[in-house]
Structure formats: structure tokens, C-alpha cells
Design a protein around this nucleic acid. Structure first.
Length: 268
DNA sequence: GCGACAG
DNA sequence: ATCTTGTCGC
């Protein structure tokens, strides 16, 4: 007669968190700026009356890598590159234990805190290399509620951001096969990128062949305070390989950092 | 109903 | 995200 089915306590809690997260995203999204809203210029050449120091120079990149032994141990990384030379001017790491799980659509609640802390540390110390623009390993508005990790960090740090996805997050009917079809289409064969138009007609970003002849695209979407057109241009100018340098350097150095820790047995 | 689903 | 070597080609 003991028929009371085991109350799924954990699912009740995670449902509550889930709703809180959605509310948070909806509130923060009201502050999102989706066009160019920065003081620097892209091409200072020939611009009448531009002031030196106003052009884009410091481009940041953030990424997180994980321990292979303990998936909750992670290394958040922030790098800043010179926009023109693509040389790394600054790097910083934060080794942390993450308590929040990865849930598709809620990546920011897992990864944003560490990355924001790295930005904050740089700003507090008035570091001259503080980024004028940040590229994020994860999507911007290409997200179920139009507010991915890049938007989240952009709004909370009040910084222009661009979202870079290495895989497509299925949104508004966009699928892997949709993109394959579009990129493979004859009329698009010469284009470097194609708009990601969902069933609703909304443009969520672009799929870009960042390297000549590369099959696997990257997915660019706006984060905060930047237009898609400008974002595309900047990504193109920072791509030596498939992934733009700020993201790639953050990724490489982040893995390197965590690998060295594991070598010294500091993780396990 | 089942599966898909950034990192 | 992470587990993983060599290998084919410019």
C-alpha cells in the first residue's frame, strides 16, 4: 500500500533553478544593445579628425578548459591581443571548482562568473590593456532565448562582445543539415559566410568558412554593443586559422595551464 | 512520445 | 568540455 512514488526532490530543485535562470536571462536581455555602440574606430586611416588611441587595438578572448580527471575543476582564461599584430599582450588564469552543471541554454550560469572575475581584476587594477572588445567561446544571441554567454558577459561587464560557436546550437529550426545544405549550395559556394535564418525569419548570426576551403564553419553571433556586420569583419581580420586568434589563444593557453597543474599533481 | 541541445 | 596517434598534404 506504500504507493507514494519517490518524490524527485532533485528535479524539483533543478526546475526551480531553471525558472530562475530564465527570468534572469529575460531581465538582462532588456539591457542588450544590438548595434555598434563603442567609441573606438575600425579604420583610422583617412578618417578626418580621429584621435590617436581611439582606434580598436585591444581585443580580448575568453575560454575555459577542464580537468580530464575531475570535470568540476576548470581553468578560466582571459587573453588580450593587439588587433593588428595579433600578438598576445596580456594573459591571466583562474583555477576554480565549478558547482553549477552545464545545461544547454544556460552555459552562462556555469562559465560567466569566472570570466567576469578575470575581467574585473584587470579593470580594478587599471590595466592599460583592458579589452575594448571581447570575443567569447560560446554564442551570443544564437540562443533559445536570444541571450547566450556572450550577451550575458557583455551586459554584465558593459563591454562589446562577439559570440563564437564551434558547433551549432539548434534554435528556431536551424539544424546541422540546414547549414550543410546552405553552405553546400551552388549559389553560396563562393561566399565566405551565410546568414543563419530561422523558421521565424530572424537572422541569428552567420555560419562562416573562416579558412579557405574549410568544411566545418564557425558560428558567429552578436553579443553586446556590436552589429553583426561589424562582428563579421572583426572575426575575419583576426582569423589566422578556423577559430579567431583571441579565442584560439585563450583555448591553447588555458589547456596548457591546466595540463601543467595536472603534471604536478595539483588537481587530483 | 522521443530526440535534439553552445561548452 | 574530455578521452586520443599517426598521418596525408601543402
Amino acid at each position: 500500500m506504500e504507493e507514494a512514488p519517490e518524490e524527485p526532490l532533485q528535479s524539483r530543485d533543478s526546475w526551480r533553478d531553471h525558472q530562475t535562470w530564465i527570468t534572469t536571462q529575460d531581465i538582462l536581455r532588456e539591457k542588450l544593445i544590438t548595434d555598434d555602440s563603442f567609441s573606438w574606430k575600425l579604420s583610422s586611416e583617412g578618417e578626418p579628425g580621429y584621435k590617436k588611441g581611439e582606434e580598436l587595438r585591444y581585443v580580448g578572448g575568453v575560454d575555459i578548459s577542464f580537468s580530464k580527471d575531475d570535470p568540476s575543476k576548470a581553468c578560466g582564461t582571459l587573453v588580450v591581443l593587439d588587433f593588428h599584430t595579433l600578438q598576445v599582450l596580456y594573459q591571466d588564469f583562474s583555477f576554480v571548482t565549478l558547482q553549477v552543471p552545464y545545461v544547454p541554454g544556460f552555459l552562462a550560469f556555469r562559465e560567466a562568473p569566472v570570466l567576469q572575475q578575470l575581467l574585473e581584476k584587470m579593470k580594478r587594477s587599471d590595466n592599460p590593456f583592458y579589452p575594448q572588445l571581447l570575443m567569447v567561446d560560446g554564442n551570443g544571441i544564437l540562443h533559445p532565448r536570444g541571450f547566450g554567454l556572450a550577451c550575458h558577459i557583455g551586459v554584465e561587464a558593459n563591454l562589446p562582445t562577439i559570440g563564437i560557436g564551434k558547433n551549432l546550437h539548434h534554435v528556431d529550426g536551424l539544424t546541422h543539415s540546414t547549414v550543410r545544405k546552405l553552405l553546400g549550395a551552388e549559389e553560396n559556394s563562393s561566399k565566405e559566410y551565410i546568414n543563419l535564418v530561422g523558421c521565424s525569419g530572424r537572422i541569428w548570426g552567420v555560419a562562416m568558412r573562416s579558412t579557405q576551403g574549410s568544411i566545418k564553419p564557425i558560428f558567429i553571433s552578436i553579443g553586446h554593443m556590436i552589429s553583426l556586420q561589424t562582428a563579421i569583419m572583426i572575426v575575419q581580420k583576426t582569423c589566422k586559422f578556423r577559430v579567431p586568434e583571441p579565442i584560439r589563444q585563450a583555448d591553447i593557453r588555458s589547456r596548457d595551464y591546466i595540463r601543467k597543474l595536472e603534471m604536478n599533481g595539483k588537481v587530483t
